[in-house]
Amino acid sequence: MAVRFLPSGDTALLVEFGAAIDRALNDRVLQLRAAIRDAKPAGVIETVPTFRSLLVHYDPLQTTAADLTRAIEALLDHRQERTRTAKLWRVPVCYDLRHAPDLAEVAERSGLDIDAVVSLHSGTRYHIYMIGFVPGFPYMGDLPERLALPRRTDPRVRVPAGSVAIATTMTAIYPIESPGGWHLIGATPIRLFDTRRDSPALFSPGDAVLFDPITDDAFEEIQAATEAGTYRVPCEETSP
């Protein structure tokens, strides 16, 4: 599918690579985002990567859609393999039932026992496709097919911060308390979003995530250390 340039009014240009949730499409989105970051075309305010498109917000007093389209086309044409940096995060997750109100149901519906759900969920390396819905909410995929379930028919009004959840082909962490329709299968004591940091979100689109099962005691310890500001989430450089 050819790249499409779709106007979003006169302040944003949607660069669409395809219509599906697909790792290869998302890599092209993230590559263009990195190229725009480096080349800094005139008038660009910021870019928002999503599954299969990049929304380029711009100032119409500094550039035009036509000029910006040409600048972005040039970046797409001269695509060089750039060494994007990405991080691999090891996120501690407690799957104890007290943190996992939907785990038993997920196990039942997927025809697995609870331990098998936990080992499938924590045995997969996830790619962060995009961050949105609420500040810091990472859409991570792809979930093992056995665990893919539609969203709950009865969304919760309040999902606690730190809840680890699954729905469709994705897994996510609720960074702040919010409404939510995903299945809650665990919780992490780490803080995903903190406005006191210069980069408020811990993760960036394109980063990788592994879930590390922990006990309830370890959850309490890490939670205390997080509140004291002494806990660092294990993280290493990785190739995307």
Binding site: S8, G9, T11, A20, F51, R52, L55
Partner: peptide, 28 residues
Amino acid sequence: VSDGIATGAIQVPGSGQPILLLADHGTA
């Protein structure tokens, strides 16, 4: 498939009733 939203976008959910998005709209 979720994508980015510009201020002023008129989105149309399943009901067909349009919603005009303003300053505090979600990013996607």
